[in-house]
Design a protein around this nucleic acid. Structure first.
Lengths: 334, 334
DNA sequence: GTGAAAGCGCTAACAG
DNA sequence: CTGTTAGCGCTTTCAC
């Protein structure tokens, strides 16, 4: 920066101004500085800027995993909105482990991110205090606060999500309406999938058709996991006539296993998926699933952050909660 | 940090040492410092560290888009390898636009990333000089250098990729062997897809079965794009009996359109995809495709970077090129 | 509109 | 093993 200033015959602070706020500098000076920048190929050190100004224009984001198309889509939406406002994304994965999520969040805060996006509402103890000390906007996604003793749990700050419990209930209602008698659940052993199970099981049991034959496997989930899960469930409960899967990948795996073993879907077993990935529309029979707006979750999170970031530093204490909902997509498999 | 130092009764450097290299401090002192850190909830400012040490432990990565599962997988692999070595990922999207890629790279360099991962080998003029000034390891992925006037173009630095041209040739050879007479290509109007087309068209024309009926659409691609493309191609070339698609999403879209309009696959039209996404195995008929190792590309890129990062600062001028290849997966659609 | 001085929070190099 | 002294490259604040 000194070099540029020297080449343009101005002080360093003028270069800084040209970069940050060009209008505050006389056109002639500005032009000279810009020319010097171009000639020298000067690339400003944004870390130094962050240190001096304590604004990084970086948003941190922690997701369980990127190999799942659904989180990738959310990140895509988030990144889209942020990029337009000149913010960048610093990414970390938690591998579905609250302890890793806590560590990741800590590192991100160490980078002095201007805001933080987290996945889910269930975190390690300690995360709450950690993020609150940072005094930055936070958005939790992909879930909504639950209820403990009848009262709604408080979000960390803002939320862009949907109710996994209710989505599970909806799946249960749908399968019950199809007159299924012996229901199962196949999902990842992970908080949000367990909530879907909880909602699902509650309506099934309320109708006296419980208990739900349950299979929970370690994420990330695969076709093979779905196939294995179905075999095991069928061994335990030979009369199984419906399974709700925690995601469409598992549901597709179940479908493949059915095809291999001559089980007819939905005639012998009804199969439901979750999240409405492209694959759900592609299989034969096509998968009935609960669609969530993965991309919109990210965009909404981004918009909420920007509103707070661009406005007054610490304005309204408005805890904003956006429920983007879900929608059942009835196709052929259930 | 001063607070911590004070609370522990040591100098600030000692705190710094406990953080960076605990063994270099006497256990008793170390314990005192760690206790103070915990008590005060101190989160070190990593930007200040970066500024002082000029090492950020951040790797920058530019991808065309995250909504494509294939790049997300590469990032997942990369992130995996880097996380184990305590590096983080700063992400930027280029939206398939070389100018945006250049801007993104510049911003990432401004953050003083320790290394850079780019997608593809075709960049805006200016990128070459920009990244070379930075003197950091670079890996280009998802492609290999082409040939100009018979000699191989030089990579920016390192490469973890595969040949899109040869992959296209392989697809052509496969369809030709099935005795297809009138061949088409459906892909995104983007450099790597165009290379697949180039390879494909070259073998088709060499056999005198050209020209290839071609449809190129703006990325990102969708089922609908695939369906539309097929309709348009069929209008132009009613005798079309084979299409090679630049990705599996398009191929699935083509399949759906065929089903709707009663065209039998592969009997009336053979359909090939690219990249072997889960959907390719799920459709009926299952899609014959060219599989690439999306995740491995990222992991390999990460390993190459780490080797350079952990070793001597500017050692061997070894331009490393890893060709991870591709593999044709013959299923039912062609 | 532009400049001079001070400092953001850390690490490097050297000393003890 | 621990402390002292100098910056890293910017932005801020206040003069001019």
């Amino acid at each position: 920066m000194s070099d540029v200033a020297h080449a343009a015959g101005v002080a360093r602070v003028t270069v800084s101004r040209v970069l940050a706020n060009p209008e505050s500098v006389k056109p002639a000076t500005r032009a000279a500085v810009q020319e010097a920048i171009a000639k020298l190929g000067y690339v400003p050190n944004l870390n130094a800027g962050t240190l001096a100004s304590s604004r990084s224009r970086i948003v941190g984001c922690v997701v369980p995993s990127l190999s799942n198309a659904w989180f990738a889509e959310t990140i895509d939406g988030l990144s889209d909105v942020l990029a337009d406002a000149n913010y960048q994304l610093l990414l970390a994965q938690s591998r579905y482990d609250p302890a890793q999520e806590l560590r990741a969040a800590s590192t991100l805060l160490g980078r002095r991110v201007d805001a933080l996006v987290l996945t889910g509402v269930d975190h390690a103890p300690g995360l709450h205090e950690l993020v609150h000390r940072a005094h930055i906007p936070i958005v939790e996604t992909w879930d909504l606060p639950g209820h403990r003793d009848g009262i709604e749990e408080a979000p960390l700050d803002m939320i862009a999500g949907f109710s996994n419990v209710k989505a599970g209930e909806t799946a249960g209602v749908h399968l019950l309406a199809r007159d299924c008698r012996c229901l199962g659940f196949i999902g990842a052993d992970e908080e949000r999938a367990r909530k879907r199970l909880r909602g699902f099981a509650s309506v099934v049991e309320r109708e006296g058709r419980g208990p739900v034959a349950t299979w929970l496997g370690h994420p990330p989930t695969t076709f093979e996991a779905g196939a294995t899960a179905l075999r095991q469930l069928l061994e335990r409960s030979p009369k199984l006539d419906a399974v709700f899967c925690g995601n469409d990948t598992l549901a597709a795996g179940v479908l493949f296993e059915c095809r291999r073993s001559g089980v007819r879907v939905p005639h012998d077993i009804a199969v439901m998926g979750f999240s409405d990935q492209p694959i759900a529309a592609a299989t034969e029979p096509a998968i009935t699933t609960v669609a969530v707006q993965a991309r919109a979750l990210g965009q909404q999170a981004g918009r909420m952050l920007l509103r707070r970031l661009e406005n007054k530093p610490a304005p309204q204490p408005s805890p904003m909660v956006a429920d983007l909902g879900y929608r059942i997509v009835v196709r052929e498999s259930a």
